[in-house]
Design a protein around this nucleic acid. Structure first.
Length: 485
RNA sequence: CGGGACGUAGCCUAGGGGCUAAGGCGCUUGCUUUGGGAGCAAGAGAUCGGCGGUUCAAAUCCGCCCGUCCCGACCA
C-alpha cells in the first residue's frame, strides 16, 4: 500500500508535510532549511508566476535582474534594515581560495543593491518613476523552517519602484497590494484581508508595511504578500536625489513589494484534505485527467475512445492528460490523481464506451456524475469553473465562521483558549477589535497568548470611537488579531 | 539556540550483547489482472546516521557529533 496522509484532525503539521511529500511538491535537501521543489510543485509556482507577471506588466513594470551577492557595507547603510536582517544573513568571505577584502552577503532581499544602482540612474524627475520587478531567490538563515512556508532559501518576486512624490509612491504601494489581493482571490481561491501592519510587525526599513492575510484550515493566519511604502529611507541611505520640476533637489520616494513560494504552501493549507492536495483549477498543472479502465480485450477500444475525448477536451482549451500507464490499477490511479490535486477526473470503461458516456468526478466535493460523451468538454469547463468558485466560497465561509468581534482582552484569551497558547490545537481564528496603537499593549498580548495583530484592515479605520480591547484606552484603529505562521 | 521524540534497504517497522540482521510496502522480470490503492512466482537491494569507547563478541551498552520532525525562543 502507498503511504497514507496523516489526517488533519490527528496532527495538522504532519498532515501538511505528508501532502507536500506525497503530492511530490517538494522534498528535503541535503542542506538544512532548504528544499527541493519538485516538478509538480514548480509547475504550480510557474502558474502563479505567470499570473503575477502578467499583471506587473499590465501595471507598467519591467523585469530586471540584480546580483545574488551584496557587499556587506551596503546592508549597513539603512539602520533599521541592517538591524532587521543581520541575524539571518549568510556571508561569503572566501572567493577563489582567497579571503575577500570585503565580505559579501547573499541577498536576503535586494533593496540595498538595487538602490545603489538607482543612485546612478536617477538625476532628474524625468528619470522617474522607475518600475522594476525581479524574480529571484533569496536566503535568510531561519532558525526554524517549514516546507514552502518558511525555508532558508526561497523563490519570490520583489518589486522596487522609485517615484517623484510621496503620493505617487503610496499609490503604487496600494496598487500592488491590490494586484496581490486579486491574484490570491481569483487564482489561489484564497480570501484575504488587506491591511496595514503595526509598527512592531512592519518591514525593516519601511515607513509603512501593507499586507494581505489569509486564514488556513487550522484557523491560523498566513501572510500571503506584502507591499511596503519605504518613504525616503533608502533614497537617503543611498543618497539618491533628483532635480524636481521646480529645480529643487529632493530624495526619491520608494516602494517594494513581494510574494514568494510561500503561496504554494498557502494553497495546500487552505484547500487540501485528508486524501491529498486540492488545487484551484486555474493553477493546476493538469485541470483534468482521463483514467481509462479496460481488460486486455477492451483495451484498444477504450484507449481510442479516450484519445477522441482527450482531443475534444484539449480543443476546448482545457489542460488535460490521459493516464495510460499500464502498470497500475484504476483504483491506484484515482488515489494518485487525487493526491496530486487534479480538479476533474474522467473515468472511461467498457460500460461507458457502450453507452457513449463517461463518469466525471470533481476533486473538491468528490461528487461523481455520468455525462454524455459529446457533452464532456462543456461539462468539464462547467465543473472547473464551479470548483474554482467553490474553493473560494468555501474558504471565505470558513474564515467568516471563524472570525468574531472582541471587546476585551478576556474575550480574546477565551477565544484562543486560555491554556492553548503555543499548541497546535485548533482554537480561535480571526478576532476583530479596537486598538489604541500602543506597542507595549500589543507586545503584552503576544507574550501572554501568542496572538498578534495581523493587520489594521483597510476600509475599517474611519470614524473609530470606543476603547482599546486590550487596555481600555481610547482606540485609534480597528485591528485583526490571530495566531500566525 | 533550549526542551522532547526519532535515526536499521528507496519508504515503514521488528530485533535492545552472540549464529547468514527479519518482515511489509515499493523496485526488477514473467504470467494472470484492471469500475476505488490487484494476484502468483522468481529476483535485486543494508558498511544498522557518523566517529570513538567498553567487550572474546556491538545494530544492541557508553560518550561525543550529525541529521529529521514536534514544542519553545527567534523571524518582511
Amino acid at each position: 500500500m502507498a503511504e497514507k496522509i496523516t489526517p488533519r484532525s490527528v496532527d495538522y503539521s504532519q498532515w501538511y508535510i505528508d501532502i507536500v511529500i506525497n503530492a511530490k511538491l517538494a522534498d528535503y535537501s541535503p542542506v538544512k532549511g532548504c528544499m527541493v521543489i519538485r516538478p509538480h510543485g514548480y509547475a504550480i509556482w510557474e502558474r502563479i508566476q505567470a499570473e503575477m507577471d502578467r499583471r506587473f506588466k499590465e501595471t507598467g513594470h519591467q523585469n530586471a535582474y540584480f546580483p545574488l551577492l551584496i557587499p556587506m557595507s551596503f546592508m549597513k547603510k539603512e539602520a533599521e534594515h541592517v538591524e532587521g536582517f543581520a541575524p539571518e544573513l549568510a556571508v561569503v568571505t572566501i572567493g577563489g581560495g582567497e579571503e575577500l577584502e570585503e565580505p559579501l552577503c547573499i541577498r536576503p532581499t535586494s533593496e540595498t543593491i538595487i538602490w545603489s544602482k538607482y543612485k546612478d540612474w536617477i538625476q532628474s524627475w524625468r528619470d522617474l518613476p522607475i518600475l522594476i520587478n525581479q524574480w529571484a531567490n533569496v536566503l535568510r538563515w531561519e532558525k526554524r523552517t517549514r516546507l514552502f512556508l518558511r525555508t532558508a532559501e526561497f523563490l519570490w518576486q520583489e518589486g522596487h519602484t522609485a517615484h517623484e512624490t510621496e503620493a505617487e509612491a503610496v499609490e503604487e504601494t496600494l496598487k500592488m497590494l491590490e494586484v496581490y489581493r486579486d491574484v490570491c482571490e481569483r487564482h489561489l481561491c484564497l480570501p484575504v484581508i488587506a491591511g496595514l501592519k503595526s509598527e512592531a510587525e512592519k518591514f525593516a526599513g519601511a515607513v509603512q508595511t501593507y499586507c494581505i492575510e489569509a486564514m488556513m484550515q487550522d484557523k491560523k493566519a498566513l501572510q500571503a504578500g506584502t507591499s511596503h511604502f519605504l518613504g525616503q529611507n533608502f533614497a537617503k541611505a543611498f543618497d539618491v536625489q533628483f532635480q524636481t520640476r521646480d529645480g529643487k533637489l529632493d530624495h526619491v520616494w520608494a516602494t517594494s513589494w513581494g510574494t514568494s513560494t510561500r503561496l504554494v504552501g498557502a494553497i495546500i493549507m487552505a484547500h487540501s484534505d485528508d486524501k491529498g492536495l486540492v488545487l484551484p483549477p486555474s493553477l493546476a498543472p493538469e485541470e483534468l485527467v482521463i483514467v481509462p479502465i479496460y481488460k486486455n480485450e477492451t483495451k484498444a477500444a477504450v484507449l481510442a475512445y479516450g484519445d477522441q475525448l482527450l482531443a475534444a477536451i484539449k480543443a476546448a482549451g482545457i489542460r488535460a492528460v490521459m493516464d495510460t500507464d499500464d502498470s497500475s490499477s484504476p483504483g491506484w490511479k484515482f488515489a494518485e490523481w487525487e493526491m496530486r490535486g487534479t480538479p476533474v477526473r474522467v473515468e472511461i470503461g467498457p460500460r461507458d464506451l457502450e453507452a457513449g458516456k463517461v463518469m466525471m468526478a470533481r476533486r473538491d466535493t468528490g461528487e461523481k456524475v455520468p455525462v454524455e460523451a459529446a457533452a464532456v468538454p462543456a461539462k468539464a469547463r462547467e465543473l472547473l469553473d464551479a470548483i474554482q468558485k467553490n474553493l473560494f466560497e468555501r474558504a471565505r465561509a470558513f474564515r467568516d465562521e471563524n472570525t468574531r468581534k472582541v471587546a476585551s482582552k478576556a474575550e480574546i484569551l477565551e477565544f484562543y483558549g486560555a491554556d492553548s497558547a503555543g499548541t497546535a490545537a485548533a482554537h480561535g481564528g480571526f478576532a476583530e477589535g479596537l486598538w489604541c496603537g500602543s506597542r507595549t499593549c500589543e507586545a503584552a498580548l503576544k507574550a501572554e497568548s501568542k496572538v498578534t495583530i495581523r493587520c489594521l484592515p483597510l476600509g475599517k479605520q474611519e470614524d473609530i470611537s470606543g476603547k482599546c480591547c486590550l487596555c481600555g484606552e481610547p482606540a485609534k484603529h480597528t485591528a485583526v488579531f490571530a495566531r500566525n505562521y
